[in-house]
């Protein structure tokens, strides 16, 4: 016997949730930084999403919902209960160093930001960001999520999203400048002033 409600729900799942699989995959890649792990996260996230589909409110942001599920899958896939150290001060020294070299970083980066071949360097720089910053930058800058949505996905206050974004973007600039310098896209830095 046909069950219209279930059929409709399955069709809606296809049209709404599965339509976002590229975004979920990209987000999983950014979380895991590993292709195989990302695929496991995506599969498990979609299974959980399907089982919980009745709880999804149509008309709300499905990507926010799926990102939250995917992140939870990712966190549980790591050693149980053992989160990476995600201190908010992580990276503070690098940000300080970035400020000390602000002129060089901006001057160098500004000259190359419109290059069309910058994608791999940005991806590599992103992959090097400490996790708390990477998550915030990926959600807001790559996945167009609002601060509020990122706060919900990451289960942190909006103020923390704001500070992680600030540091994450500054760290990204340092790392990107380094990659660009290594690739010969921008000149070598003059020695940074010693912090000591």
């Amino acid at each position: 016997m046909r069950k219209p409600a279930a059929t409709d729900a399955h069709a809606a799942f296809s049209a709404v949730a599965l339509a976002a699989i590229d975004d979920v995959y990209r987000f999983a890649r950014s979380l895991t930084r590993d292709e195989a792990d990302a695929e496991d996260v995506v599969q498990e996230a979609y299974l959980r999403a399907f089982r919980s589909w009745h709880t999804f409110e149509m008309g709300t942001d499905v990507r926010r919902w799926l990102f939250t599920i995917a992140r939870n899958v990712f966190l549980r896939s790591r050693e149980k209960g053992k989160r990476e150290v995600t201190l908010d001060d992580d990276g503070a020294e690098i940000v300080d160093a970035a400020q000390a070299r602000e002129q060089w970083i901006q001057g160098g980066l500004d000259a190359i930001l419109e290059r069309t071949d910058l994608g791999p360097a940005i991806a590599a720089a992103l992959a090097e960001l400490p996790e708390p910053y990477r998550e915030a930058v990926v959600l807001v800058d790559l996945e167009d999520q609002s601060y509020e949505a990122a706060a919900e996905v990451l289960e942190i206050p909006i103020g923390t999203v704001r500070s992680r974004l600030f540091r994450g973007r500054k760290l990204l600039q340092v790392s990107l400048a380094q990659h660009a310098m290594d690739a010969g896209l921008i000149p070598r830095a003059t020695p940074a002033p010693s912090a000591e």
Binding site: R26, L118, G119, D141
Partner: peptide
């Protein structure tokens, strides 16, 4: 310009 570059670099990566 920096944010635009990051956004533009959003991997055209699609789910395999």
């Amino acid at each position: 310009r920096f944010l635009a570059a990051v956004q533009a670099a959003r991997e055209a990566e699609r789910c395999p």
